[in-house]
Each structure stands twice: as C-alpha cells, then as structure tokens.
Simulated scan of single mutants.
Amino acid sequence: MDFNFTDEQQELKRWAKHFAKEKFSSKAYSWVKNGEVPWENAKILSEHGLMGMTLAIEDGGQGLPLIDAIIVMEEIAKVCPNTADMFQVGNFGAIRQLAAYGSKQLKERVLPSILLGEKLISVAMSEPNAGSAVTDLETKAHIDGDNVIINGTKVFNTHGPHNSFYVVWVRFGNDVKSSGAILVERDSPGLTIGKTETHMSGEEHCALYFEDCVVPTENILVPNNGFKRLFTMFNIERMGNTARSLALAQSAFNIAVEHTKERKQFGKLLAEFQGTQWKVAEMKMKLDAGRLLLYRAATNADKGAPSQIESSIAKAYINTTAFEVANESLQMMGGYGYSTDYPVEYIFRRIRGWMIAGGTPEMLKNKIAEEVFEMKFSQRGRNREVELNK
C-alpha cells in the first residue's frame, strides 16, 4: 500500500499546520490549566469547514475520507490538544454513531448545533461494573408507548459535565443480543448529571444517573443486536484517540530534540552523547512505525470505518509506544520536562489516559490474537454452576 499523500492531501497538511499555529497556538495548553472548554476554537473549526469533514454531505458534512481528517487532526493536536478534542467531537466520536444510525429527522434536529461548534456529544458506554467487559451492560431500556424508559448508571464519559447529548449504550432485554443505543439529551426527564470529577490529565468527567429517564422512541439509534454495528463506528472514534496520541508524542519528541541540541552538560551538548542519540533513534523509529499503522487503517477505511484488526493494531501499538516516547522525552529534558511550565509533563499525563480510553492495549491484543488464530477466546472465568454440573 502506498501511503504517499496526493497533491491535495499534501496541500491540506501544509494548510492545516499553518492554520493550527495561527489560530490556536496563543492559548494552547492554557485551556486545561484554567478548566475551560475551548468553545471559541470549536466555532473557528466550524467556520473553516473542519467540523464534519468525515460526515456525509447530506448530513451537513464534507464527505471526505477518514485519512483527510487524520491529517488535520495531527496538525491541530501538535499545537493544541484541547482544540483537537473539539475536532474529535465533530469527526470521530459519538457523532459518527448518530450520523450512521439516526433517523433523518433526528439528525436534522441534533447535528447542526454540533457541527457549528455550539454543543458537544459523547458516547456513554462505561459503567461501574462494565468497563472493558462492555458486554456486561446493566443499563436497561424498555419501550412504553412513544417513549423509551432508561434506568442505570454511566461513568467516565468524555466532556461529561459539558455535553448536550449522550449516545447511551443500553440493553433492551436481558441478554447481550438485546444491546442497542439511544440518543439522550441533557435535559431529558429522569437524567441526573453527577458531580464533576477530574482525571490526572485535567479532563473533566461525571457520572450519569438514569432513573426512569424518558426519551422519545425516535431517539433510538440501534434497537437491538447492536454491538457489531456500534463497534464498527466506534473504530472511527479509536482512530481519533490514536491520531491524538501519536501527534502529542511527536510534539514531546520535537521539544526534547530541540532541548538536547541546546542544553549542555559536562561541557558538551546532550545531543552529542551516544546514549541520547540511541534514545532519539528508537523514538523516531517508533513514531514512524506507528504513523504507518495509523495511515494504513485510515486509508483502507476510505470513506467508511476502519477494520477491527487494523484499528486494533494501530491503537494498541501507538498507545503503548507514544507513552514510551513521551516518557523518554520527559527524561531527556530532566527537571524541565517535569515542570508544569513546559508542555511535556502534560503530554505525558494525557497520553497515559488513551491507554485506557477506547479499548486498552491488553483488550486490543486479545482481538488481534483472535484474528491470528482464527478463534474466539472468552475472557470470562468458568461459571460456577457449570463447574458443579461437570
């Protein structure tokens, strides 16, 4: 596969690099320190046609392939990670599940405000007892006339305190085949937004409590047997996670390299020490390998969703190696890398979270192994009743 960009994509990359630096560099890294959402930057993205790049034209998007959005994501994330989060909302996240499975009427009502950068949407899938084991969902929904009634709890949703919409993964029955998804609006009766909590990266999240929450049936995105369909679109969200992880690692690497070209110890530049040179070479190899895996998954997806195996390989590898690169970058900078006056320590903390969100490397490796062996492996322990009946 040839991963060379077309002339148009090369121009898009050049434009995005200049655009991100001009529009977002002045306040970069200040948003999380101040506990603010970069709403103004979301609107700038919208004004320049960057919210909805990957959505169909009939849904208000640009109808562009996934790789084009990856190109822009990398350039934005290298300048301002929090603005890249806004770009994620408009191109990679829950919006893709809404666009793929929502009715025409629902999309016409909800999508415009998101694409204008005025409102946020995220997936609400994790629960107190269902994280990696997302097939163990306990949030239940049942249809009552023209409404759906939802009961359960969700945790760790991105931008939770600030979202206007949540794509809530539920069970409509008692088994995993009854799993589906519903779009729930923030002001829905019976929905309570929990207290704002903060991850070590400074990102805010909250629990969502559904107590006989009432939502119109027209908000149902997937009515049953939904995991395969939902995860098809969720693989796109994973690509946004992966692209940001890679881009931030690249930023940390660039900062560390410049530091070693200027910083002297024992009478010579850090860059002149062979130990530094080997570190830098290893980091460069990891970044380049990760980028090729990301581009393969995105390119093969074209305008659709990437395959599970290629997205799993890209995310598992990049999440792990990006953290290693960020860690080594911080080490190369010594006390400067550890200081909050420089962005490397934030990059280190932020990248660590992507090794948890969207599918851990451990769970993704399980999927990769299943593909290699052409077998399914259950991660569950043996049922005690089965043990007793043997």
Rank of each mutant, 00 (worst) to 15 (best):
N34K: 00
G35H: 12
E36I: 12
E36L: 14
P38E: 14
W39T: 00
E40H: 14
N41E: 14
K43R: 15
K43W: 02
L45T: 06
E47F: 03
H48T: 05
G49N: 04
L50W: 00
M51D: 00
G52L: 06
G52A: 07
G52Y: 04
G52H: 06
M53V: 02
A56L: 13
I57V: 15
G60D: 12
Q62F: 05
Q62G: 09
L64P: 05
L64S: 10
P65E: 13
L66S: 04
D68V: 00
D68N: 14
A69D: 04
A69N: 09
I71M: 09
I71R: 08
I71W: 11
V72A: 05
V72P: 03
V72T: 10
M73V: 02
M73F: 11
I76V: 11
I76N: 05
K78G: 13
V79G: 02
C80Y: 00
N82F: 04
N82W: 08
D85K: 10
M86S: 12
F87H: 06
Q88Y: 14
Q88H: 15
G90Q: 12
G90W: 08
N91V: 00
F92G: 04
G93C: 09
A94M: 05
I95W: 15
I95V: 14
L98A: 05
A99N: 13
A99M: 10
Y101V: 08
S103T: 14
Q105G: 14
Q105A: 15
E108H: 12
E108P: 06
R109E: 15
V110S: 10
V110F: 02
L111M: 12
P112V: 13
S113G: 09
I114Q: 07
L115C: 08
L115T: 11
L116P: 00
L116H: 13
G117H: 03
E118W: 05
S122W: 01
A124G: 13
M125L: 15
M125S: 10
E127R: 11
P128Q: 10
G131V: 06
G131I: 01
L137D: 10
E138L: 09
T139K: 10
T139N: 13
T139P: 14
K140M: 07
K140F: 01
H142K: 13
G145M: 06
G145P: 08
N147G: 01
N147F: 04
V148N: 08
I149N: 02
T153A: 12
V155S: 14
T158M: 09
T158A: 14
H159E: 05
G160N: 14
P161N: 12
H162C: 03
H162V: 00
N163W: 02
N163I: 01
N163E: 04
S164R: 15
F165H: 14
F165S: 11
Y166N: 05
W169H: 12
W169I: 12
V170M: 03
R171L: 15
R171W: 03
F172C: 07
G173S: 09
V176T: 11
V176I: 12
V176E: 13
S178R: 01
S178V: 04
S179R: 00
S179E: 15
S179L: 07
G180M: 07
A181W: 04
A181G: 08
